[in-house]
Design a protein around this nucleic acid. Structure first.
Lengths: 411, 411
DNA sequence: TGTGGCTGTGCAATCGATTGCACATGATGC
DNA sequence: GCATCATGTGCAATCGATTGCACAGCCACA
């Protein structure tokens, strides 16, 4: 009777929920079903009027909503108090017995008993609850532009390997060259209380760095650093790498040297251009404006577009120094489309020596950077920040060197 | 006086800690300093005997241990009760006002006031605490072999893009071809109460799948599936892809066709070999044992080693069908070292069409797989599992097709 | 035989947000 | 003017592990 009166499906939903553990009651139902609103009190009252109780209501709900209590509802994972009860000790004793660093305070007999029972019933400490109390999630956040950029996988792997033994997990976010998206990712990481953050998207003046710092989260930057050095950074030596490369190009006899540079807002893009400029300048070679292409997002398309322009100049360059390998690939594609031969007609160089550059045709002359090692060092740096022994914010530089292949020829 | 008696540095550490918030007390000190053990009670007692209190002890500690209270200790991030106090409402009201799905139950005026104050003081809900209550961390775990394998980045990116709008974050783990490491990663993910897990390392009989299922965590497999179909899987059509490729090789006139296959414990490795076999069989071409190399870890070194063996046969194959592109790269390297020309002397094909295969020399003929899409579909599948509307465990197949380049030639 | 230190364990508070439920007040219908 | 119903807010329990502190019992040394 009153079932119809009170909107049948609603009651069903409510009762079904009531049968579950710690889930939606009136509030939740109200927010999902907006047609009608009521209180559990009211339902109870009416049920009582009819001489029925909630159990009856629930049975009815199961029937009419086709709801069956799910297995996951009845079988919750064992918790520390379960172990404690079975081992006939206090939960705190279980906690200590299972923590290797505190085990010594507990008698061997109890440690053995607790360990056995924990294993037997498959007890796994709930890390969320532990984080709640300890304030540490044993998780770090890593922000990159896009894992598809081949420099990131070795960085990520190096990082994970460095922190794995300490029990840390890696939360990954792809900022996708969008400051907003990256910022949102960092917000979520902070909300999730990560123990530290590694930024691989840092620009010279980076609001994200400030955000992490403001949240008092240990932060490390890799591959790029902020202008103010406010966080420890692990980078490769871009100036030196590009100087070596440019020097090499010059030694190969090139005089008309173009450069497809990266965004000048990032230390890497900035320093690489500095390297090119300083080497050219030292050799008295000019870098005319039409030979300098600055890209915002140093990706393949950018390399392609810039090269199309460079090669259509009245006197095109004989060598194009690209800010990275991916841009160089784009440059090669442009050459191919224009029927310009590399390296016969134009030499192209890259930077980073990402995977498979040795297999491209012609083999790409580039600058080898040990990203795995940078990731590893960044991981270690973050670990010491997390442990509170932050010696000093600094910039660690990993050297890099030219790898000669075929895309650069002697003229 | 008693300071010396009780071991000075110990007291210092203790007192310093006592000045901090919710951190190490006697227990913690005891576990780190094993030389001597004592109780705070005792210290208090002695301090009282000396007519001193803890505050004095602490001052002394700061002096002698050089400990200064850290900023992070005094300035904790604002919490919901801070907002509530400032807005002069109950924390529960703040919680509801800030939750868009429940905002409707709160008066506009309070929503506005609470929102403003929350913004002003930079309140960010503590996701860990929320997880504690709701049981959901809004985080999913992803397990791959190694991000450096170029098939994984697009999978990961596709996945992240698919779930990003729902507020989920991605926790990444590199199993590194080690069952133990992968298992440990999954354990940690489960302990951290991820809302779901995506496995990209699935083998036909996979204990990891069972582990996830046993933990009652929504699980999806991508690129590979378990034999029993116990989890929804999103894969590319390996049988068909390899059939197409093999057919193509045959149509190019090859009769002596070798195959470097992947591990037969994975559905991908297994099905690709099936594809090769079925196509060869249909054309009446034999696959003699010496032409079939099965690798455990289908990586570059494996492709290299297998090819060295194949090419040193008395009558070597004219075409080598590789289980994937990376193996094919290894095969090409072997050719180069042996002075065997590809494709003049031997044709090589890959699978996956990973980034940059078009740039290698010779351009790799391979099978294009849309990994980004697979990642996307896996993400969507996981979302519906998480939302509880799991229609049916199934295998979603994404088609793939041959991409002809230069590494396969007509003979 | 006390005094003091050490060992092993229990008690209970705590982390911070969420939410089931109650309830006061205002609105509406008969 | 009396039932109902709707609205908006507060109260307090809860999630599960950790840990500061207390304390009982034991041992050793004086």
């Amino acid at each position: 009777m009153f079932l119809f009166h009170l909107n049948e499906p609603l009651i069903c939903a409510l009762c079904a929920c009531a049968g579950r553990r710690n889930r939606c009651g009136a509030d939740a139902v109200l927010s999902t079903v907006s047609t009608r609103s009521f209180r559990l009190t009211d339902v109870r009252k009416q049920a009582a009027n009819n001489g029925q109780d909630l159990a009856w209501l629930r049975k009815c709900a199961i029937r009419c909503a086709g709801y069956e209590q799910r297995e996951s509802d009845k079988l919750m994972p064992p918790k520390i108090s379960d172990v404690a009860r079975l081992a006939n000790v206090h939960p705190s004793t279980v906690s200590r017995a299972l923590d290797p660093t505190k085990r010594s305070r507990i008698s061997d007999e109890i440690v053995a008993r607790v360990t056995k029972i924990a294993n037997d019933i498959g007890y796994r400490p709930n890390a969320v609850a532990a984080s709640m109390r300890t304030g540490s999630t044993r998780t770090i956040g890593v922000v990159v532009h896009d894992v598809n950029d081949p420099i990131y996988p070795p960085l990520i792997k190096g990082l994970e390997d460095a922190v794995l033994d300490t029990g840390l997990m890696v939360m990954l976010g792809n900022g996708g060259f969008s400051a907003d998206r990256a910022s949102g990712l960092v917000d979520r990481m902070i909300a999730r209380a990560v123990d530290g953050i590694v930024l691989a998207t840092t620009v010279l003046d980076d609001p994200l760095v400030e955000k992490c710092l403001a949240a008092k989260i240990p932060t490390v930057s890799m591959v790029r650093y902020p202008r103010d050095g406010s966080v420890t950074s692990v980078v490769n030596d871009c100036v030196s790498g590009m100087e070596q490369m440019t020097q090499h190009v010059i030694e190969c006899g090139h005089q008309r040297v173009a450069c497809i540079a990266g965004p000048q807002t990032s230390s890497a893009g900035h320093n690489r251009l500095i390297g090119v400029r300083s080497s050219l300048h030292r050799s008295g070679i000019d870098l005319p404006p039409e030979f300098l292409k600055i890209t915002d997002q140093p990706r393949m398309e950018a390399g392609y577009a810039a090269t199309m322009e460079l090669l259509s100049l009245a006197t095109p360059p004989t060598a194009i120094i690209c800010v990275n390998d991916v841009v160089a690939m784009g440059a090669m594609r442009a050459c191919r489309e224009l029927g310009v031969s590399c390296p016969e007609d134009v030499s192209i160089t890259g930077f980073n020596n990402v995977a498979f550059t040795e297999f491209v045709a012609p083999g790409l002359t580039t600058v080898a950077v040990d990203f795995q090692r940078i990731g590893d060092l960044a991981g270690r740096a973050l670990l010491s920040e997390i442990e509170g022994k932050c010696p000093q914010k600094n910039i660690q530089t990993v050297p890099c060197h030219v790898v000669s292949r075929d895309s650069l020829r002697v003229i």
